[in-house]
Amino acid sequence: MNLGEAAFAVAQLHYRHAAMNSGKSTMVLQYRHTYAACGRRGLLMTRLDRAGTGIVSSRIGLAADALEIGADTDLTDLVLQRPEPRVDHVIVDEAQFLSPEQVDQLATLVDDHNIDVFTFGLLSDFRGLQFPGSARLVVLADVVEALQVYPMCWCGQPARMNARVVSGEMVRDGDTVVLGDTGADVGYVVLCRRHHCAGQPFAPLAAAA
C-alpha cells in the first residue's frame, strides 16, 4: 500500500434503526444539514415516506425534498448517472422498504465507488417481523446501530415494537405497507415486547368504582 492509498478514506454502509416516533426522520434531516455544512455533496433519498411525494418529513414539522425510490429503481445507476458533480455520500430514509437487491446496490456504491451510504429505518413491521430490506442491511452494513432515543410504551418501558391498531384493536395481519399518515380507524402505536406479544396496545381501563 502506498501513501496515497493509506490516506484514502474508506467509505462505509451504515444502518441506524429505531421504532416509530423515535425521531428517526428528524435525525435524517440533521445528518443532511450537518454534512452539507461541512461542504460535502450528498444525495437524500426516501422510499414510501409518509408524505408519499418524495419528501423526507418529520412529525415535528421539518421537511426536505428527496429523490423518491421506486420499487424497481437501480440505486447504483440512480447515483452514478446523475448529471451533477459526483456525490460523496447518500442518505436514505425509510430504508426498511428497500428490496434486498437495492441494499446490495447501495453496498456496491460503497465498495466499488467509495461513496458513504447512511440508511435509516424500522427494524421490524407491525407483526414483529423484519422487513426484507432491514434484514439485508443488518447482514451487509459496516455499522448497525439502534438510535438511542426510545419512545415509551404505555406501561413506561422503552418501546421497540411497532403495532397497528384498527378501530381500537391491535391487528397482526394485513398489508405491510400503508402509505401516508393514517386516519381515525387505522393507526400505529409503539409498545414494549411484553405488550406487543400480549396484543395490548393501550393501558387497561380503570375498573369502574
Rank of each mutant, 00 (worst) to 15 (best):
L3S: 12
G4R: 15
G4E: 14
G4S: 13
F8V: 09
A18M: 09
A18T: 05
K24H: 07
M27W: 15
Q30Y: 14
Y35Q: 14
A36C: 03
R41D: 08
G42Q: 06
L43P: 01
L44Y: 09
L44D: 07
M45N: 03
T46H: 06
L48V: 10
G52D: 08
V56C: 12
V56A: 08
S57N: 11
S58M: 08
L67G: 03
G70V: 02
T76I: 01
L78H: 01
L78A: 13
P83D: 10
P85S: 13
V87S: 05
E94K: 10
A95F: 08
Q96W: 06
L98N: 00
P100F: 09
T108Q: 11
L109F: 08
V110C: 04
D111E: 12
I115K: 03
F120L: 14
G121M: 09
L122D: 03
F126Y: 13
R127D: 00
G128L: 05
L129S: 05
L129R: 09
F131E: 02
S134E: 03
R136Y: 01
V138Y: 00
V139I: 04
A141H: 05
D142R: 01
E145I: 04
A146S: 10
V149C: 11
P158L: 07
P158K: 03
R160Y: 06
A163Q: 10
A163H: 04
R164P: 00
V166M: 12
V166G: 04
E169N: 12
M170Y: 05
M170I: 05
V171H: 01
G174F: 00
T176G: 06
V177A: 08
V178Y: 06
G180H: 03
A184Q: 13
G187F: 05
G187L: 07
G187V: 03
Y188L: 04
R194A: 15
C197H: 11
C197N: 11
G199F: 02
F202H: 13
L205N: 07
A206V: 09
A207F: 00
